[in-house]
């Protein structure tokens, strides 16, 4: 059940990403995805395996659901956020989008606890909120870096 729920969610995020108008080009999208993927994997390792703040199910189906969310779900959601963020005109709309994205990510994390994929040991949703808030800042930061590097590049590859 856990795997099916997360498979559906990840499918939905990928489908949304495929159909939305993308402001970022393929290099920028890939770069942001990879940066968020690296952060997401390292963060999960630290809170679960290094510091034992969260415990992870040792059953195969919930574990696969966790891998799917960590490696595809969170980075794709971050990409959707950055693509929408870059074409959002006003500061208030940007702030609302920012908070909404963080709430969605915390909501997905709460689904993991509800389905007993993860169990909070010395952790709570506020820490999750802070983490996802910082993750979205990293996503925008990664976009700004690659966008700056991309500017004016017309060489043949």
């Amino acid at each position: 059940m856990e795997f099916v729920v997360y498979f559906f969610l990840v499918w939905l995020f990928v489908a949304i990403f495929a159909v939305i108008h993308k402001r970022l080009n393929i290099v920028e999208n890939t770069f942001v995805y990879l940066v968020i993927l690296i952060i997401s994997i390292n963060y999960s390792w630290f809170v679960i395996d290094e510091f034992n703040l969260i415990s992870l199910s040792e059953k195969k189906a919930p574990y696969l659901a966790y891998l799917l969310n960590r490696s595809v779900g969170i980075p794709i959601l971050s990409l959707i956020f950055v693509n929408v963020y870059t074409r959002t005109p006003t500061l208030i709309q940007k702030a609302m989008l920012f908070v909404s994205s963080v709430i969605i990510l915390v909501g997905i994390a709460s689904l993991s606890t509800a389905l007993k994929i993860i169990t909070f040991l010395q952790w709570n949703y506020w820490f999750d909120f802070i983490y996802y808030f910082l993750l979205m800042i990293c996503a925008i930061g990664a976009y700004k870096i690659i966008h700056r590097v991309m500017r004016g590049v017309v060489e043949e590859i």
Partner: peptide
């Protein structure tokens, strides 16, 4: 080009991280 140089360095870092973890 510099963007691709940066992209494929990060690509290598990410793929090794994914498989190792």
């Amino acid at each position: 080009p510099r963007p691709l140089m940066l992209l494929f360095l990060v690509w290598g870092f990410a793929t090794s991280t994914v498989f190792d973890f």
